[in-house]
Design a protein around this nucleic acid. Structure first.
Lengths: 332, 332
DNA sequence: TGTTCTTACGTCAACGTTGACGTAAGAAGG
DNA sequence: CCTTCTTACGTCAACGTTGACGTAAGAACA
């Protein structure tokens, strides 16, 4: 900036004015400054700028997601980006892979970077460590999972309802032995889905069989193995509810492998691209990822605009999408 | 920092030493400083730190991708993140949606943020605007598309080969009327794939029929419409090559709708989750997304470590994955 | 014993920028 | 004509941090 000022024959402050489009610089000077900046390949230093400015917005929002490579996190990231960029915010994305330690590290990095806000799909279960950031006024929006120990905004879906819908749908179709495969038990979302499953059984006065509930299924392969095992029992389930997209995929593979994909029913949690094209088309509980991301972005923007009302907890309702796999009747 | 220093009864410089883990602070003082920092909720200001430091690494790498929500960009982003984070780099991701203007805006934003490097899947066709950044030493790695007008590293796949493989595979299967649907014609990648398609036809001495080549297909729906149209002609194609994942999906839908998914062959460019589960399973040209991302990350890290050798142009070979849809023979 | 080295600090300026404030010259107003 | 206002600048300090350098006290050594 000093060099530009010298070349243009003005003071640094005038260069600053021109660069920031502030008034107080004549057209002639403005032109001269811009040419000098051009000649010297001058680039504004945003870091120095935000350091000096009072309102000091870094223009960065951190998005700590489960895995930016999977369709749920990726879709969320995209919706978030679309909502925030028009306001000049950039999104710094990170994958947590359910590792609480990573979460802490990345949060502290983002705090050190003076991120304007944080979107968190937490890997940890307790969030007291965020209290001081909240006190300092850092906007914080939880997504997909609720905050525990810190009072902040969140956007989640009604997991209980989703699993209930899935299970009840199968029951309505005549099934009485319905197995459920669920994600890591430490994840609250997974627990809620299990609760929804059990609630649907209860409502229908069906006995809960612990054999039919397998939790902490962590991979496609594991899901496939579990299903193969269940199918091999004396009194196998006639339908499955799968608690997460990768589990659903593992389930499809296992049902195919056992050649029962047209005779055993399946309702998956989470929709994904092509779910309607596989055979039979997958009946799923869909969460509107785009909507979730947009809500998160909106809340964040409101907070940044100064909204200091009490934390909101937006709970979106998932919907049942009937496509075939969930409408297979039990054997007569 | 000043406050921490005062509370701990030391100078700011000592606080700085403790915060940065530099030697020259006794255990007692260190402890006192840390406690004071804790008490005051002190957070290190990375912006100020990098401003002052000589080597001034911001720790940010920009990733300008086509759409962080689609599986290709998302997978790339994830691989990139995994490669860069161990070196303390965070990834700032952005979607370009094939809009050159966005690309410029975001690049200039990242330059102003003093990003340590840029990963670019460009929407623009000429890249001279990056010359000054390169001169300034900004590491720049193009991915999926080659740079034009700026000399920098790139990681691409051999698109010509990929389309050639796909087409030749269909020809070897007996097909003689093979249609190709391709992405936006301005995208070089799309042009290369068309060239590969034509080369395969030439090698087999098959006449190129312009009616069978449709470019600038931009959406799933458009792909479906185009295919429906082609199937309705007097001498319809017996096989399709689709130049991109969303086109492939549109094609699957159209073939299903016309009830010819088991009689018309299809080879898609780009693999995606579940491609093996649809019926018939999709034969595709697969690019190893993980590998691409890892290569990009590696090059970037090398450059940041001081490697100033001439730009590398890594070209990875895509592979044909036979699953069924591409092995359907032409009607007798 | 004096000399040199080491350790553990402190002081000060600078990184690139902008807010607060000052000022000179011309315009506007009486 | 003088006064006041406006415009177009310039000066200076400060944002939070760290590099360069200084120094006092004790350790090590001859």
């Amino acid at each position: 900036m000093k060099d530009v000022a010298q070349l243009a024959g003005v003071s640094v402050k005038t260069v600053s004015r021109v660069v920031n489009g502030e008034p107080g610089a004549s057209a002639v000077v403005r032109e001269r400054v811009l040419r000098a900046a051009e000649r010297l390949d001058y680039r504004h230093n945003l870091g120095a700028s935000t350091l000096r400015r009072k309102d000091a917005r870094s223009g960065i929002v951190g998005a700590l997601l489960q895995d930016v490579g999977n369709s749920f996190s990726a879709g969320l990231l995209r919706a978030l980006e679309d909502t925030l960029r028009p306001s000049g915010l950039s999104v710094l994305a990170a994958s947590l892979d359910e590792e609480p330690e990573r979460e802490r590290d990345i949060v502290s990095d983002l705090v050190a970077r003076r991120a304007d806000g944080l979107v968190l799909m937490p890997a940890s279960h307790r969030h007291e460590y965020l209290l001081s950031e909240r006190r300092a006024g850092l906007p914080l929006v939880f997504v997909d999972r609720r905050p525990h120990g810190v009072d902040c905004d969140s956007v989640t879906i009604d997991n209980h309802l989703g699993a209930d819908l899935a299970t009840a749908h199968l029951i309505a179709g005549g099934h009485r032995r319905i197995a459920m495969l669920s994600d890591l038990h430490e994840i609250e979302t997974a627990q809620e889905r299990i609760a929804g499953y059990r609630a649907a059984l209860d409502k229908a006065h069906l006995r809960f069989d612990p054999e039919l509930l397998v939790h902490s299924v962590r991979s496609e392969d594991e899901a496939a193995r579990v299903i193969a095992g269940l199918l091999g029992t004396a009194d196998p389930p006639t339908a499955f509810v799968t608690g997460r997209n990768i589990i659903t995929i593992g389930a499809v593979r296992a049902l195919r492998a056992a050649d029962v994909s047209r005779t055993v029913a399946l309702v998956g949690f989470d929709d994904f691209p092509l779910a309607d094209l596989i055979e039979p088309a997958l009946t799923v509980i869909r969460q509107d990822v785009r909507r979730i991301g947009t809500e998160v972005g909106r809340i964040l923007l409101d907070r940044l605009a100064g909204d200091s009302s009490p934390p909101q907890h937006v709970v979106l309702e998932p919907t049942l999408v009937r496509r075939g796999s969930g409408e297979i009747p039990p054997p007569a």
